[in-house]
Simulated scan of single mutants.
Amino acid sequence: MKVKSSLKRLAAAAATTAALASVPALAQEVVKIGYSGPLSGGAALYGKNVLDGMQMAAAEVNAAGFEVAGKKYKLEIVPLDDKYNPSETAINAQRLVQEHKTPAILVPHSGGSFALQTNNEAQKYLLLSYTSVPQVTARGNKLTLRIPPEFTGYIGPFTKYAMGKYGKNVAIANADHDYAKAWTAAFKPAWEAAGGKVVAENPMSYNRATDFYSGVSRVLASKPDVLFIGGASEPTGLVVKQARELGFKGGFVIIDQAKMDEISQVTGGYGPLEGSIGVLPVVDDPAPVTKAFVERFRKAYPGRNPSSEVSLNYTAVHATVQAMKLAATVSDAAKIRANLDKAMKALPDQYNPHGLDGVDERGGSLANTRVATVEGGKVKERALRDFK
């Protein structure tokens, strides 16, 4: 009898211990933010950079503790590959909403963002759009955050620098996806209005091709002073490399999707990029908060440097979490969106290495944009006021 009684007590104690051990797991629910972007193909590095920034932020949120309205949560990023195909983005969004109950989905391309804007308001999820195309916010979608500033702010400075340094004849040899087309549609009339001439147009499939000799040869036959290029960084690097190998001596205007530091890894340094103008690489940003972010990233991802895809989407996740806290909800997308401006402004500097200043009423982020040129084989930071 004593043996049976002892066994009963041990069983009861074990059951109590198990029940207590399960309490934290039950108390801490999971909030999921979806991601649909390219994780394979020519834009895979671009997509991975976006995802790494998101996951770095999620790790910090969970380490610090994530509590909303007195309830503890764990943040999880759910990534799906869409191969840069808007149709795949739309399919992924349905999976993320239906299977994972994501209150927000981040998409790093304009085509996919437009695809989701057809129903995200009806399905009540927040679109975190990593594209600088103005139309993403101009559509009036009330559940959209455009993460980077509009690219139109770059066009005047890029035109003034390249035309003044090299000449008035430009050949367009950028990518052929929706984002690059939007850039071309804005850049071409601006270049012509400044007195320049477009001598050739040959967009190329940066996300699928690995050899650009024929396309680059075609535009170089028009004897341009400047090449207008850009898409994902790796294929952009191949375009630069092959243009130099074919004897091109002019400058490059590089759309903001491509990053000079990543291009230089393909070209064998900054030498082939001499005379280029593009966005300022994160690793060359002298701001102390950005330098500290770079070191944290290098520690988390040894052997790698962060791009602006990393830093801006890192901030977007932190801002979304902060907005959830201010809105006292992890599921009401409208309330979360309504608090994004306050959330962005309230972010500690360490979570905002790009220095985003807030969110306007249309859902577009605000920032003091800076650019960079390559002179003497080195990156030189340039403020937009330098080109006025």
Rank of each mutant, 00 (worst) to 15 (best):
V3T: 14
S6P: 03
L10T: 14
A11C: 10
A13H: 07
A13I: 12
A19Y: 12
L20M: 04
A21P: 02
A21E: 13
L26N: 12
Q28P: 10
V31C: 10
Y35G: 06
S36T: 15
P38R: 10
S40M: 02
G41A: 00
G42M: 01
Y46I: 00
Y46H: 10
G47Q: 07
G47P: 03
K48H: 11
L51D: 07
D52G: 03
M54P: 05
A59L: 12
V61K: 05
A63S: 15
L80A: 00
K83P: 02
S87K: 14
T89G: 09
Q98S: 13
K101V: 03
P103G: 03
L106N: 04
L106M: 13
P108L: 01
H109N: 15
F114Q: 07
F114Y: 12
A115C: 08
N119G: 15
N119Y: 15
N120P: 11
N120G: 07
Q123H: 13
K124A: 11
L127S: 09
Y130G: 05
Y130R: 01
Q135N: 15
R139T: 12
G140T: 08
G140M: 06
R146N: 13
I147D: 04
E150Q: 13
F151I: 01
G153N: 13
G153A: 13
G156D: 01
G156R: 04
T159P: 06
T159S: 07
M163W: 03
Y166E: 02
G167H: 04
G167F: 06
V170T: 09
I172K: 06
N174F: 09
D176L: 13
D176R: 05
H177R: 13
K181P: 07
F187N: 04
K188W: 09
W191N: 01
E192K: 11
G195Q: 08
G195S: 11
S205H: 09
T210L: 00
D211E: 00
G215N: 12
G215Y: 02
S217R: 15
V219Y: 03
L220Q: 05
S222Q: 12
P224T: 00
D225E: 07
D225S: 03
L227F: 03
F228Q: 02
F228R: 01
E234T: 14
E234F: 04
A243Y: 07
L246A: 15
G251D: 07
F252D: 00
F252I: 07
Q265Y: 09
G269W: 07
G269F: 00
G271F: 05
L273R: 10
G275H: 06
G275D: 01
V279I: 12
P281T: 09
D285I: 02
R296V: 10
R298Q: 14
A300E: 02
Y301K: 14
R304M: 12
R304C: 10
P306Y: 00
S307I: 04
E309A: 10
V310W: 07
T315N: 06
L326D: 10
A328G: 13
V330I: 08
D332K: 04
A333F: 06
A333W: 03
A343E: 09
M344W: 11
K345V: 11
L347W: 07
H354K: 11
G358K: 08
E361T: 15
E361P: 04
G364Y: 03
G364L: 02
N368F: 09
T369N: 12
R370A: 05
V371K: 08
T373C: 14
V374G: 07
K378N: 10
L384I: 14
F387R: 06
